[in-house]
Design a binder for these strands. Structure first.
Lengths: 330, 330
DNA sequence: TAATCAAGGCCGACATCAGTT
DNA sequence: AAACTGATGTCGGCCTTGATT
């Protein structure tokens, strides 16, 4: 900056003003611009951050594999941040054991704080991380993508409960009475909400829930495992906690000669791009994960700006009926 | 740090030594540890970065949607960085037009430099970005995930050419003579390499290439578009530039009554997790994108450490034969 | 008076060097 | 001499204050 000042024949201080926006004369401005261009000068954000005690950077913590949902959320977070002139430091953790989870998450958040991020978005929160986030929320604004009753941490999340409700009701309306639920990982918040939606829909129709089949991961492999073992005569409808699990389940059943919608109906959640190109195209509940990510950033920036607690935002879920569901034939 | 020093009854300087590793007495160390714990003190990386002129941070630039490949690369980059105590600033750009591309990329890289990152990984490089990267490579180490003949920029990439060669040869060995190629976006490096592999395999077998069908994106929709229009009698084998495109193509053909491997054979590239759970499971060429990301980081760190140009690393591709390919029946 | 610019201090660490046991 | 500790200056910006036109 001193170099630029020398070349433009002004003080370094005036060059600083040139960047931050203050009184700089027309002519002086032009000379500085020329000098900046000639020297290829670029502000040193590190020095600036130190002085202004602000980094215009947010930390984004993601857990588990970068699957469709996480990728879309990241896209939304990135877009929202860039649109507001913020940068994003991303950390993705593969969490193997529950013990790892806490210390790894802790370490990742500490690193963010050490970087003096202006705020943190915690994607994919696991059950039992409330205390950790609570603590961090005391130091810097935090938005989490799940329900979190706390004044220190804001939240937004997709409407998993209604998604489960809607998906199950759809099957019930088609006439299904024995409806199976393929549930997501037990340590994930969304799993519980989707399952609760299923249970409530079943209950309100006066039906009985079948034993829930739990998937260790949100992936096709987990669904295929169940599809290979399940008794196909025990159900006519299937509500899968997400599309991937549904794909695996259907694939395994197809290998046993059972296909949708002829032998059973199946509905998923997410509406992955691929769901449209499956045979049959999958009925599912669409979630706008990009919007979710953008919303998280928007709320975070607002919290940073005003310091006020943000009302929780719930991103709606929308049923998309395709060809994997129909009336039961048995 | 001064606060910690006060509580531990030592100078701030000694606290600094405590963290950076230097002579600190046994007893003093214990007092500092206690003080740090009590105050919940955490180093200010921004100040540290300014002083040591190093940030232990790398920038990762990604272009286009965060699809399977990008997500895996990001996973690898993140893991490699975390394993070496580095942080990652991620920027993902949706590039709509070619003009946007250059200025957006430029802006994103400038931002990295302004942050004083220690190095940059440019994922998904587009054709024609060489000059920009070259320029940036003069200021800070850069690794790009494509071929780049330059002393300023190191590179690593998956073996797209051999993947194309292998996939096409596989079809030829099965007896196919009219082999169609569904090519990826024309502005992407990998597309060209995969297509060249196809052409060379066709040529070495003394066959004639069919007109290449170009996809505007790496997605199923693009493949489906071609699948809906193509003349099914014009080919017996299909080499698709990636799995997603293959899925869309097969889906559209299935709607017209043509299925693999009965009516035609199809092979993709990537080996997405889903490819195993398709009907039929897709024959494909596996690429280890996580390894690619880890390799990029490893090379970058080595370049940062030594300042020496790194030899380009090519990640091998491996044919995975499943049930979408077989001998031609016509 | 308003617009414009310069000088000095400070953000929070670490390197250096001097000083003590 | 070796182990340890403290004082000072510096990284590169921005803020405050005060001066000048």
């Amino acid at each position: 900056m001193a170099d630029v000042g020398r070349l433009a024949e002004v003080s370094a201080q005036t060059v600083s003003r040139f960047f931050t926006g203050g009184y700089v004369g027309q002519e002086t401005r032009a000379r500085i611009e020329a000098a900046v261009a000639e020297l290829g000068y670029r502000q040193n954000q590190v020095a600036r951050n130190l002085r202004v005690q602000r980094t215009d950077t947010v930390g984004f913590l993601m857990m588990g594999p970068i699957n469709y949902g996480n990728a879309e959320i990241l896209t939304g977070v990135g877009r929202g941040a860039r649109g507001s002139g913020m940068s994003v430091i991303t950390t993705q953790l593969d969490l193997d054991t529950e013990e790892d989870a806490h210390s790894d998450v802790r370490a990742a958040l500490d690193r963010f704080l050490s970087f003096q991020v202006d705020g943190i978005v915690v994607g994919t929160p696991y059950l039992g991380l409330g205390a950790v986030m609570e603590h961090v929320g005391g130091e810097v604004p935090v938005v989490t993508l799940s329900e979190q009753e706390s004044s220190a941490v804001d939240f937004t999340h997709a409407d998993s409960y209604n998604a489960g409700l809607t998906a199950t009701r759809h099957l019930i309306e088609l006439g299904h009475r024995r409806i199976l639920h393929l549930a997501g990982p037990s340590d994930r918040n969304e799993s519980g909400q989707r399952e609760q939606g299923y249970r409530d829909a079943i209950a309100e129709a006066g039906l009985s829930p079948l034993d829930v089949l739990r998937c260790p991961e949100w992936d096709a492999r987990s669904g295929a495992g169940h599809g290979a073992r399940v008794d196909p005569s025990s159900f006519t409808g299937v509500f899968s906690a997400n599309d991937e699990i549904a794909f695996g389940f259907s694939h395994a059943l197809a290998a046993r000669g059972f296909t949708a919608p002829r032998d059973y109906s199946i509905v998923g959640i997410d509406d992955m791009p691929d769901s449209l190109f499956r045979t049959p195209p999958l009925t599912t509940v669409r979630m706008d994960f990009q919007l979710l990510g953008e919303t998280a950033i928007r709320m975070l920036l607002e919290r940073i700006r005003t310091g006020e607690r943000q009302p929780g935002v719930i991103i709606p879920a929308e049923l998309v009926v395709r060809e994997s569901t129909g009336e039961p034939r048995r």
